[in-house]
Amino acid sequence: MTTNPSAPRGSALVTGAGGALGRAIALRLGADGFSIGVLGREGDLLRETAGLLDAEGIPHRVLAVDLRDGAAIEAALTETETELGPLTALVNNAAIYPATPFLEISQDEYEDVVRVNQTAYFLAAQGAARRMADRGAGSIVNIGSITFHGGWANLASYVSTKGASVGLTRALARELGASGVRVNGVSPGAFPTKAEEIHENPAEYNQFVIDRQSIKRRGTDAELAAVVSFLVGPDAAFVTGQTINVDGGWIME
């Protein structure tokens, strides 16, 4: 990957940057000219993302954060700006997805999913928007899921929080537009990531996905990252409040 030789575009904070999709987004935005705040749980995956950014010469800062901790999210936003420059893009991507039948989900499990997938999105967006609004420009992208549109067995906690991300996107776009802050969403389809480990038969699930998509192949992480790149970039200057399904034509609405 070759970095864009154009002028720097400020900093972008990507949550869940140790996962496959978050890593692809971080690398693409880095190539676009952003300095990258690499936020996620402490561990090898986060360090691997940092290593790939290093290899591409992309300025970055590793931020090991538990997204259940609101104060830590605010501190990460501050550190991103202090070390990398004005925050011009936020990608809320991190999520957890315990696979549990609805009638067996405990309150503790449900509330844990909400803290990571919903409350953290809200707090990160709020902290980012305060900074962006002061400067009159910025872009927030919330990563949703096509499971919100179609429902999904054994993932009620996850699906409900992904629906919340769509609602949050619309509400913030309406409220923040006058301040120059755009808010959009991206709903990935079934990309071949670690998340598929919740399915007992990988080959059977792979065929299930392809049968339902209009495009008869699996998507790539880079293809999802390209849509995020568009939404935070200048070509989407008149786009806000939208959630784009990137799913090979599975869900059409």
Score class of each variant (00 low, 15 high):
Ala120Asp: 07
Ala99His: 10
Ile210Asn: 03
Ala76Val: 14
Glu74Asp: 14
Ala153Cys: 00
Thr88Asp: 11
Ala195Thr: 11
Glu74Thr: 13
Gly138Gln: 12
Val232Gly: 09
Ala236Glu: 09
Val239Leu: 03
Ala99Phe: 10
Glu200Met: 07
Leu29Glu: 04
Ser179Met: 08
Met132Cys: 05
Pro5Glu: 13
Ala164Asn: 02
Glu104Ala: 15
Thr100Val: 15
Val239Asp: 04
Gly167Ala: 09
Asp112Thr: 15
Val209Asp: 02
Gly43Gln: 05
Leu21Ser: 11
Gly127Asp: 05
Leu87Arg: 02
Val62Arg: 13
Arg115Asp: 14
Ala236Pro: 12
Val91Asp: 05
Asn4Pro: 04
Phe238Ile: 06
Leu103Gln: 05
Ala164Glu: 05
Ala89Glu: 09
Phe238Met: 14
Phe102Val: 15
Glu48Arg: 15
Thr220Pro: 03
Leu77Phe: 12
Pro192Tyr: 06
Ala125Leu: 02
Thr243Pro: 12
Thr88Val: 11
Ile140Ala: 06
Ser165Leu: 15
Asn245Cys: 14
Ala99Val: 06
Ala31Thr: 12
Glu83Asn: 11
Gln242Ser: 15
Ala195His: 03
Pro98Phe: 06
Gly127His: 06
Pro59Phe: 03
Pro98Tyr: 01
Thr161Glu: 04
Ile36Leu: 14
Asn206Phe: 06
Lys194Thr: 13
Glu104Phe: 04
Ala94Leu: 12
Ala237Leu: 12
Asp108Val: 15
Val62Asp: 01
Asp134Tyr: 00
Arg23Ile: 07
Leu53Lys: 00
Leu67Ile: 01
Ala128His: 06
Glu200Gly: 05
Ile96Asp: 04
Ala89Ile: 06
Glu56Phe: 02
Ile244Asn: 00
Gly241Glu: 05
Asn201Asp: 15
Leu27Asn: 06
Leu27Trp: 00
Ala173Trp: 02
Ala128Cys: 04
Gln107Lys: 13
Pro8Phe: 05
Glu223Thr: 01
Val186Glu: 02
Tyr158His: 12
Arg182Ile: 05
Leu103Glu: 15
Arg182Thr: 00
Asn92Lys: 09
Ala222Cys: 03
His199Pro: 00
Ala171Glu: 04
Ile58Met: 00
Ala94Asn: 11
Val141Asn: 06
Glu204Thr: 13
Ala236Ile: 11
Gly85Cys: 01
Thr147Asn: 12
Pro86Cys: 11
Pro8Val: 08
Ala64Met: 04
Val113Thr: 13
Asp221Gly: 02
Pro188Ala: 13
Leu123Ala: 05
Gly43Tyr: 08
Asn92Asp: 07
Phe230Asp: 08
Ile215Cys: 00
Val166Lys: 13
Thr161Ile: 08
Thr100Glu: 09
Val228Asn: 04
Val159Met: 10
Thr88Cys: 14
Leu176Asn: 08
Gly138Asn: 05
Ser106Phe: 06
Asn117Trp: 08
Glu175Thr: 12
Thr220Arg: 15
Glu81Met: 10
Pro59Glu: 05
Ile140Cys: 10
Val141Gln: 11
Ile215Arg: 02
Val227Asn: 02
Pro86Thr: 08
Thr161Val: 03
Gly138Cys: 02
Arg47Gln: 13
Asp32Gly: 15
Pro202Thr: 03
Val246Asn: 04
Val91Glu: 08
Leu168Cys: 05
Gly167Trp: 01
Arg135Ile: 09
Val114Glu: 00
Asn201Ser: 13
Asp112Tyr: 01
Leu155Val: 10
Tyr205Asn: 13
Arg41Ala: 12
Phe148Ile: 00
Gly33Met: 11
